[in-house]
């Protein structure tokens, strides 16, 4: 397993693209209008590229993308908060445990909070 201490180069570029997408309107524009050209600047595996293009939040989470980056991509795709949380859980069910980054060490915590009791926007 690729754990916390190991540098994972490909994950770095996935996160870098999403980071720049989050903070730079010009990068967002290129992502809409000239996606292939933009993506060619990042070292991505086919799986990573597909996950980004398809907006597969669950798989991106399993790949190890930090939530502080991922939640903004989710919002950009128009997902609501609960949809974002559910997409990550669905990702783990479908693709298995987180593969790289900080969250490989994350344990399931008992939810003391019931989103369904607090409305759903």
């Amino acid at each position: 397993m690729r754990g916390n201490g190991e540098v994972v180069v490909s994950l770095y570029y996935v996160q870098k693209l999403l980071y720049q997408l989050n903070r730079d309107p010009a990068v967002r524009r290129r992502f809409q209008e000239d996606r292939d050209d933009l993506l060619s600047e990042y070292q991505l595996t086919d799986e990573e590229r597909d996950a980004i293009v398809e907006g597969n939040i669950g798989l991106l989470y399993v790949m190890g993308v930090n939530g502080q980056i991922l939640m903004h991509y989710s919002a950009l795709l128009g997902q609501k908060w609960e949809e974002y949380l559910e997409a990550m859980r669905e990702g783990v069910r479908k693709y298995g445990p987180v593969r790289a980054g900080l969250y490989t060490l994350l344990e399931d915590r008992e939810q003391t909070w019931r989103p369904d009791l607090h409305g759903n926007r």
Binding site: Y61, G67, R89, V92, L106, Q111, W113
Partner: peptide, 11 residues
């Protein structure tokens, strides 16, 4: 806190 992860909301 566990922000922006499936554990979001756990405190």
């Amino acid at each position: 806190h566990w922000p922006a992860t499936p554990n979001s909301g756990v405190i």
